[in-house]
Write a protein that binds this DNA or RNA. Sequence first.
DNA 1: GTCTATAATCCGATAGAC
DNA 2: GTCTATCGGATTATAGAC
Lengths: 219, 219
Amino acid sequence: MQEPSCTGNGYVSQVASPTRERILDATLALVQERGFGGTTVTDIEELAGLSPGSGSFYRHFRSKEEAVREVYERELERAQRHRETFERGPVDDPPQALTRRITEQLDYMERIKPLITLLAREHGRFPDLEAKIGRSLLDQGITEEADHLTRDLHDHPAHGDPRALLAVVISAITGYHLARTFFGRSPADVTPERFASTLAELIITATLDPPDTPGDKTP
Amino acid sequence: MQEPSCTGNGYVSQVASPTRERILDATLALVQERGFGGTTVTDIEELAGLSPGSGSFYRHFRSKEEAVREVYERELERAQRHRETFERGPVDDPPQALTRRITEQLDYMERIKPLITLLAREHGRFPDLEAKIGRSLLDQGITEEADHLTRDLHDHPAHGDPRALLAVVISAITGYHLARTFFGRSPADVTPERFASTLAELIITATLDPPDTPGDKTP
DNA sequence: GTCTATAATCCGATAGAC
DNA sequence: GTCTATCGGATTATAGAC
């Protein structure tokens, strides 16, 4: 409705215009719902509280594509900020620590859902942004998770192929989240808590009792 | 280029018109690539070998939406046919049987990739179709996979929470596939073979040595 | 069943008053 | 910075010849 007047003294000059921010919000919501091609500038203007059909949008962005690109960037920054929240101290009891770590990861995916939805829906339209986000989410996320995992399992024997174990864990968490998002139901109707504790138990059992690979005779 | 003339004797009367089929092919390819809103009927006509801009499309479908809906239905049928391929006999050696089962599941996801891409990209546009496909893929797939799993593990002790174990396995396979599709890379750069054998090993270890849940004192 | 041609609408983007 | 008004082009869909 009205701007909270932060331009009175010129002190907070770096703050983005509220209207601009509302346009980004509207763009995010609509592109998530209808996709880039299904969202019109008129729709965005209307949801942002501007007169639909007026070009007011264009006083803030050169084109629809520019606005959507900025939405991606903003969501990536948010995702990175959310990730920093997870830097908590180590916990002693491995099963509970792991279960909590996995639950945290599921919460994290829930929080960055907008970004994930954008990636899924507009896959292929902005390859540069996708590559950048992929690097940030996958590489950074994977190395950090690997650190957490080894820390949580500090007094367990190492797994035979820790990197593959990591891939399985990350895939499971990702897949559980996406199945819920896309179908509105959990796989096999299993709750997040049950999922987390089962996955944690799997990891711990595997690191407690690493079986010999059949056909692989270690001396 | 030219139709393989199967209308010569009227014998194969149930075969769909080749042009109609080409329109569906073109629609699938373009909607996968650009989304529903980003695909125009003119594009579809051009890719289907019709004169772009002519309404020839409309001699076969009432609207773009109708064609896309039919694409969904066709892909669902294909996915169901592909699933029937997996009904193979049981294998004796559990680790290898499980690894092969997981690899088969990954192959299956690769084959139904078009359907998965459609679901991801157009999520929310056709709720009825999504619900129908969700029921078919999730429910049917889950019960069948549960059967396979218990069969492959026939001489192993049961897991404490088989349904949750199933959810983890299905989530992992789904997540591995989707991460590859959306980012063009495997999670943690782990190959499908490595992924499958690691996941199989996890399952087997968990069913070989089911640990007591801490705080849960079973008599 | 495919074509040319076109109607009717929608959309992205701009110009200029306030 | 927002509005009214509008241009030019793209898009869905139809009409009618062949």
